[in-house]
Design a protein around this nucleic acid. Sequence first.
DNA 1: TCAATTTCTAAGCATGTGCCTGGAATAGAG
DNA 2: CTCTATTCCAGGCACATGCTTAGAAATTGA
Lengths: 192, 192
Amino acid sequence: MPRNKSYSDDLVLEKAMNVFWVHGYEATSVRLLEKEMGINQFSIYASFKNKKGLFINTLQKYRQLVIETSFQPLLQEHAGFAELERFLLNLTTLKRSKEIKKGCLIVNTAGELGEKDPEIAHELNLYYDFIRNMLLRVLQNAVAKKEIPENTDVEKQAGFFLGVMQGVSVASKTMDKTRLNDFISIALAQLK
Amino acid sequence: MPRNKSYSDDLVLEKAMNVFWVHGYEATSVRLLEKEMGINQFSIYASFKNKKGLFINTLQKYRQLVIETSFQPLLQEHAGFAELERFLLNLTTLKRSKEIKKGCLIVNTAGELGEKDPEIAHELNLYYDFIRNMLLRVLQNAVAKKEIPENTDVEKQAGFFLGVMQGVSVASKTMDKTRLNDFISIALAQLK
DNA sequence: TCAATTTCTAAGCATGTGCCTGGAATAGAG
DNA sequence: CTCTATTCCAGGCACATGCTTAGAAATTGA
């Protein structure tokens, strides 16, 4: 009986994600969103409740998307030092593509909103925990494969590389590619 | 002949700095500024031209203030590894004081505005260049004092620690103190 | 074909935004 | 004291903000 939606929630969500990614949360207006998403304000509020609801959906979409693409090499069962190295060095070219230095949406959000909103903070923590666990597994694999010393404190190192990733995200907005590569290569070399 | 100002530019600037620090640039309204600075909007525009002008003055004030306080130990002529270590470990307690995780104003701004505005971007670069040079001198001292290996690539290391500092700034908003300490201690240990 | 049900459109709400203006208050110079 | 330059204050400007609502348009089952 009902009339059908003329748009896909998933598709417009991806467009919203890019808007938030470029402008941040506060600086993104609902007017701009409806323009870029190609749907009316009414539809935005009907599908995602309000601006914050849309943003949280956006963060979830981002996590899903990054896991499906960038993180894929690190999520392979056998991923070790080589995969970590390639992944990190890839970041420098990835983040700076399209002449727009967008950084990581999650890190941007942590920087802008921190823990001011509990729901959003929860979303950030989900992301960070996922990364920490992923890195932990990679480092354990690297130890098992004898790519890094046996006595490596993999827990600490996982936290360290999470910090490095956050640093790369903000540094990518002001550092040039060479310096970013230096930053990463030192972080990696330290694993021996 | 003129009537005298009833406020000190420097003093109200410091108050403005704290407002921008907590809320970021976009989310800080002129109404809130006049309230916290204790002066009328007219006076704000008379003294600092407009909101952006005030913000740029704020960034300069911040740089000056940080140099006079936090960076002081590192700017001593003989500052070496010990000073670097104490400085970095201090960051974790500093940034998280007052239950508010403000991070570094410059890094926050880089995250929020990136290079969207050239004047602001210039201000950020001034700050980063200053830090890089400061770190470079400290590392050179450390080499001279034989605290770290002679063949250390001090230029790269200076860039590395600048990246670490940026990472600490954003990580301080979500990581607990222990993890932050782990992050920093690994970065330091890597110097051997 | 028609009625039910949902989507969409456009207009508008109250409030907040950065910035400006006219005139009162204040202080120094003559 | 008077004149004048400057600061301060109140109010207001045009526009942007997040969000809502009434009604038209569209799609389905009966």
